[in-house]
Structures are given as structure tokens and as C-alpha cells.
Simulated assay, not measured.
Amino acid sequence: MGSTRLMSHVNTVCDWVIRLLYLNFLWFFFTIVGLVIAGIFPATVALFSVLQESFQKGENVRVFKRFWNVYKREFRKANVLGIIIVMISIIFYTDWLFTNQVMGTLGMIAKGILLGSCFVYGITLLYVIPVYLHVNGKLFTTMKLAFLIGITYPQYTFFMLLSIVSIMLVSFLLPMAGYLFFISGIGSVLMYFSIHVIKKVEERQKITKPGKSRLIIHN
């Protein structure tokens, strides 16, 4: 019995290693297919979608079919989301350049406010794509919910950041592992914690607003 259980765990681990390796390859391939700029966000959404299905359904996921279908379906909308993210990032960078020109106490206050805003924005980005998938690509709802979840559940955000730092450290110490698993590894961490957070949001909504439709809509 113990040997059978051990082999089951080993098979599960091996299945996930192969899946993450394959997803990492698909992400790079379809990012290049989209000429990088137009491919990176649809490929990222597709990767997260496969991970979402994998966590929910286990082994019964056709990786390539799911990845390709989501990539095609979300190509335009994912790029719109990407443009929003990039534009906000450019605004923050421009504001930072501006605050560098402001001297004295006012400059320090401005930099403090800007750094705080950037930190909150960074936390929001951790949840953006998982939330995007759960609300069927509604862009305004995605940004709003990602922000609210990020500041409401700091414990999950902390473990996300800790896991990302760990993956970056392993990738630095073992560059080959980073090449093979970096994107899919970070994606799996973000999706794993996001699924648990979103479940908590849904459970809280059921308690506070019984009988009403769920806030988060699954695909």
C-alpha cells in the first residue's frame, strides 16, 4: 500500500515536471510566433489557462489543444490588457523621472507616494491574469478585482513573492533549470495561490450576499 502511494506521488511529480517543461516551451514558441510584442500576453494568458485547468482537473488536460485554443481566442483582448499594463508602467516611470527633478521635502514625499503606488501596482499584477481568466476577460473588472484581492489577502501575496524569489534564486544558481522552467514555474505559483484566494472571495460573497450571482465567473 505504501509503495503504491509512493509511486503515485512520484508519477504525479514527473507529470508536473514534464508539463511545466512543455508549457515553458509553448510559451516561448508562441511568444515568438506573435513576434514577441504581440505574442507575449496571449501566450501568458494561454499558459495560465492550462495551469488553471491542471490544478482543477489534474491529469485530464490536453495541454497543446487548450493552449492553442486560448491563444487564438484571447489574442486581441490579451493584447489590450497588455497595452493597459504597459501604459500604466510607462506612466509610473515617467512620474519617477519627474520626481527626480523635484528637490527637498516635496520631492521626498512625492517619491514616497510614487514608490508606495508602484508597490501596490506590482501586487496587483501578481493577480491580473488569474483574475482575467476567472472573469472571462472583462478588463476593468480584472484590474479592479486584482487590486482588491492583492491588498485584502497580504498573506497570500507574501507567499507568492517568497516563492517567486525562490524560483529566481534557483534559476540564478542553476541557469539550465531557469531556462527550462522559469516562466511556467512562476506561472504555476501565481495560479496556485490565486485559485485559493479566489475561492475565499467567492465563499465570502456567498456569506455576505446569499442568493446573488457569484462575483467570479469561471470559464
Rank of each mutant, 00 (worst) to 15 (best):
F41C: 08
I151K: 03
P154Q: 03
K209G: 00
T12R: 05
S213V: 15
I123H: 05
S8M: 09
F75P: 06
L215P: 04
Y153M: 05
F119A: 15
G178V: 11
P154R: 02
F25M: 13
I85V: 15
S184N: 09
L35P: 12
D95P: 01
H9G: 01
T124K: 04
L106E: 08
F67D: 03
L162D: 08
V131N: 00
L162H: 01
I32P: 02
I198K: 00
R19I: 10
G107S: 07
G58K: 01
V45T: 11
R62C: 09
T124C: 05
M7S: 02
I109P: 00
R204D: 12
S3M: 11
I84T: 14
G39W: 00
I32Q: 07
T141K: 12
I109L: 14
T157P: 04
Y156M: 11
M143N: 02
V131L: 08
H9S: 12
G112S: 07
L51V: 13
L125K: 07
T141W: 02
T44M: 13
T152Y: 05
K138M: 12
E59R: 12
W96Y: 11
A78C: 08
F64L: 14
I40Y: 01
L180C: 12
V33W: 02
F119I: 15
I37K: 07
C118H: 04
A43L: 04
S184L: 06
V135E: 00
L26M: 14
M176Y: 07
Y121M: 12
Y93G: 00
M1F: 09
L133A: 07
L23V: 10
E59G: 10
E53M: 00
T99Q: 01
V17G: 06
Y93F: 11
F147Q: 02
S89T: 15
I85M: 11
S163K: 06
N79D: 12
G211P: 07
N79W: 01
K212F: 06
G107L: 02
I123P: 05
F29W: 05
W68T: 08
K138Y: 05
Y153F: 12
W27P: 09
L126W: 00
K206V: 05
G107Q: 01
S171F: 00
S194K: 06
G211F: 03
Y153H: 09
L106S: 12
G187K: 08
V165I: 14
N219E: 13
T142S: 06
L126G: 04
M108T: 15
S54P: 10
K200N: 13
V189I: 15
C14V: 15
F64W: 07
